[in-house]
Structure formats: C-alpha cells, structure tokens
Simulated assay, not measured.
Amino acid sequence: MFIDRDSYRRIVDDLYDGLYLVDRNRVIQYWNKAAERISGFTAAEVIGKSCSDNILTHVDRDGNTLCKGMCPLAMTIADGKTREAEVFLHHKEGYRMPVSVRVNTLTDADGNVIGGVELFTSRSSSRSIERRIRDLEKKAFYDNLTRLANRNCVENELQIRFEEQKRLGVSFGILFMDIDHFKEFNDTYGHDVGDLVLRFVADTLVKNARPSDLIGRWGGEEFIGILRNVTHENLEILGNRLRVLIENAYITLKTEQLHVSISVGATLMLDNDSSDTLLKRADMLLYESKRRGRNCLTIG
C-alpha cells in the first residue's frame, strides 16, 4: 500500500509523543504538534535553530547541561547507536519538565548518517495533577496565582499525614522552600515578572514532585512540600533535586535570561511533633540555608 508524503506528515503530527528531526549539526528541520504541546515552543520558533539555542536545553538529574556537549542525540549521530535517557527539558514558560527521550539516526539511501531524530514523552504526573486541581477547586483550597494548594490546604494535609502516621506508621517529611532575593525581582523588573517567577517555581516544583507528594504555597514567596513515606536520605535527595532543577532553569525575558534559586529547610516528622513544632523546625532550617549563602538545603 502506498502512503503519500502528506499522510506521513499527518501521522507524525498526530503522535502523542513529541518528535523532532535535526541535521548533522543538530539544526532542527522538523517539529511536530506534540513537541509544540509538550515544550510550549511552536515549530516556527524552533525550525532552523540549534537544539541548544535556548530551546529545550536538557539537563540531567544533577543539573548538568547536556545540549552544549555530547547529549544523547549528538552521541547517536556520532556513533550510530540508538539511546534512551531520562532528562529535564526547558519549557518555554521557564520551568523544568521531566521527559523520557529516545534517539536514533537519520540516514540517506546509501546508509550515510545525515542527522538524527528524537522522540520525547512527558514523565510528569499530569493526570494526577489535573485531578488534584479539580479537587482543590471544589474545596476552594488552591492558590489563584500559582494554582497550587494554598495554606489552608497544606494545614489540612498536615493533619491528615499526622493521623496516618499514628494509625499506619507511614512516615512523612516536609520541605520548606523560599525563593532567594525575591524582593529584587519585584524591585528590578516589576510585580508582573515577580508573579511570573512565582508561577515558574511553582510549576517546576509540582511537575517534578512524586504523585503522592503535595506541593503548596505557604505565602508570599514561600512554598511547602509534604512528602509521604520518605527516609532522611530520600528527603534530602528529593529536596536537592527540586532545588537543582530550579537553579538550572530560567525565564527568558526580552533581552536576558532570568535565573532563580531557592533555599530549603527539610525535616522528618518526629514522634513528639505537632504541626507547630514541625513547621517551626523546618523554618529554622530554611533560615540556616539562607545564613549559609542561599541556594542550598539544610536538613535536620
């Protein structure tokens, strides 16, 4: 059966996964509809540009930038081997999103490598997030600006976690997070950019949290994460992962890239804790991170 070129294009555009094609210099030649939906960048914005031109700028779990070096796609073009990887792409709105990528070569009729193809799929728990947003809307327990759980919802969730720990022995911990130098963003760029920074941090936190975690806005530029069933080590690893992802993401303004960092206080619930003592300890640990120079996590 013969399938014409237009039919192939429709099939590729209808894929659920993002797909793009590059030449040997990693200049983008094709960008499907799913790539637009997942990344926020339209085909018109990226075709003819290099992967590393402030587009996806993949980083790994440790925050290392991949696009300006030998990323999976570059390595596959170089050696012809297919690869799979889990990375974090830069969304057009600034936040980091976890994706699974699969890369392969493009060859001409003689088998010569002429470029590469990358297929990428979002790994964020979007459906779980959407269900949680609908639940929060029903209870009026969400923050209008960031669309995260608000302070009332966080306080309710803490009580539920305390009861769960007493009845079932399920441990939990909290991350108390604060945007570094937030007042300077407002003073320098205005409150609209300040709101953009808050949404950017909120999106990065919630899209990279586990489905069982709750991320909420405590107030102002402060956020709280409630993480179920974690150890001291897990809590530190998860908290630092979120911190590093924010540090290595950016918001693109007209003439510059705006980088943001957070300071974090992390602690597990203790047997004799109340909400007040737990939150007070997390707050003290957060300010210890500020005292140490910001953009770090202090656990205790």
Rank of each mutant, 00 (worst) to 15 (best):
E84N: 00
E84V: 06
E84A: 06
A85Y: 14
E86R: 02
V87K: 08
H90A: 03
M97I: 06
M97P: 13
M97Q: 07
V99L: 07
V99D: 02
S100F: 13
R102A: 14
V103I: 10
V103S: 11
T105C: 12
L106S: 14
T107N: 11
S124V: 01
S125E: 03
S125M: 12
S126I: 09
E130F: 15
E130S: 11
R131K: 15
I133D: 01
R134G: 05
D135G: 06
D135T: 05
K138V: 07
K139Y: 10
Y142G: 01
L145D: 05
T146G: 03
R147F: 11
L148Y: 08
A149K: 10
C153H: 15
N156W: 10
L158H: 09
Q159D: 02
F162C: 05
E163N: 14
Q165F: 15
R167K: 15
S171Y: 14
F172V: 06
G173A: 02
I174H: 08
D178Y: 08
D178I: 05
I179H: 00
I179A: 01
K183M: 07
E184Y: 15
N186W: 04
D187R: 12
Y189N: 03
G190Y: 09
G190I: 00
V193R: 00
V193M: 07
D195L: 08
